[in-house]
Design a protein around this nucleic acid. Structure first.
Length: 335
DNA sequence: AACTAGGAATCAG
DNA sequence: CTGATTCCTAGTT
């Protein structure tokens, strides 16, 4: 038996789905988080084949695998554009100057002395490490916002657990196994072993356990260094906080939230005219899915979501724009 | 086929 | 009670 981290990685690496990433910048094809068709103005983000992203104790495991990671980066060079271009609207704080980008540096190592090369490489590893960890934390934060749950699984109610399950299942195309984990709180989940998970869900218990491990690790790291914002506090955070009151979120608020994060959601919903509050649902199925996940309604679809939007007509919250177009709506009181 | 519109029953908070 | 969900019929693009 190897170390738990290695066991985990081993199980993660032969997963039946695309595991090139974890979250908004790379995940899969149904969420808004895909990369297959970047919106105009967005440089395409190459896939990240980073098993190192998927790890148990982020910090420990990274140090073991970054050498491999860096080597790969030298060859295929996927990391630099990926991380640096991740958010074109908002420069990643980690690599302001190109000279500091670890992979770019590493390509010119040929003429350096071994010691210097070692130093440079070490610095590169650290940078890669913090970049990757930052990405993972950012993705988790994003998921928390979307699901309206806390990042720390220990604090999850059984409802939160169900949301997280639904989210993870959809993100990674797992079968729906929420029933097998019904009535379990986050605390219950956290003390369960991988075998416990497998017992409840033979097909994907191991995967779910691994995912939970990432969340646990992230929460653990956050707790260790609170305030230490690896996560460039970008547009994920600001004004959008219609949710904080603890009140159940309204559909119109949810739509606003998505619209306020164009970098993440422009592929499924975007403004046509922000001043007038006119927006277009670009991918009705995705938006409905996201709404269903947020409200823990697995059967949500656009048919039902649009019915809810239509309820807003009478209330004067949302209307059809003057020139009615398919999938285009307008907030009556744009901010 | 997918979207639009709105009635009606039902549910959850 | 309100807002949302679910289901439905009928019309439109």
């Amino acid at each position: 038996m190897g170390s738990p981290a290695h066991d985990l990685a081993a199980s993660a690496l032969h997963l039946p789905y695309d595991f090139t990433g974890f979250g908004p910048s790379s995940a899969d094809s149904w969420t808004s988080m895909e990369d297959s068709k970047p919106p105009r103005g967005l440089s395409s983000v190459p896939e990240r084949g980073l098993p190192g992203v998927y790890l148990s104790r982020l910090d420990m495991y990274l140090s073991e695998d970054t050498a491999w990671l860096l080597k790969r980066a030298e060859v295929t060079n996927p990391l630099v554009p990926c991380v640096c271009d991740h958010n074109p609207d908002h420069e990643a704080p980690h690599c302001k100057e190109p000279e500091q980008c670890p992979v770019i540096d590493s390509q010119g190592l040929g003429g350096l002395s071994p010691e210097l090369e070692g130093q440079v490489e070490e610095r590169c590893l650290e940078q890669v490490q913090s970049l990757v960890v930052g990405e993972v934390l950012k993705d988790i934060e994003m998921a928390c916002k979307l699901l309206n749950i806390t990042p720390d699984p220990m604090e999850w109610s059984s409802g939160n657990v169900q949301k997280w399950l639904l989210w993870t299942e959809h993100l990674y195309r797992l079968p729906q196994v929420g029933k097998a984990f019904q009535e379990l709180t986050g605390k219950d989940l956290c003390v369960m072993s991988e075998d416990d998970f497998k017992q409840r869900s033979p097909q994907c218990g191991d995967v779910l356990h691994a995912h939970l491990d990432i969340w646990k690790s992230a929460a653990w790291m956050k707790e260790r260094s609170p305030g230490d914002n690896l996560i460039g506090t970008d547009e994920l955070v600001p004004e959008a906080d219609s949710c904080c009151s603890g009140q159940p979120i309204h559909l119109w608020q949810f739509l606003r939230e998505l619209l306020l994060k164009p970098h993440t959601y422009a592929r499924c919903i975007r403004w046509l005219n922000k001043e007038k509050g006119i927006f277009k649902i670009e991918d009705s199925a995705h938006v409905a899915k996201l709404w269903g996940i947020r409200k823990n309604r697995p059967a949500m679809n656009y048919d039902k979501l649009s019915r809810s939007i239509r309820q807003y007509y009478k209330k004067g919250i949302i209307k059809k724009p003057d020139v009615s177009q398919r999938l285009v709506y307008q907030f009556v009181h744009p901010v």
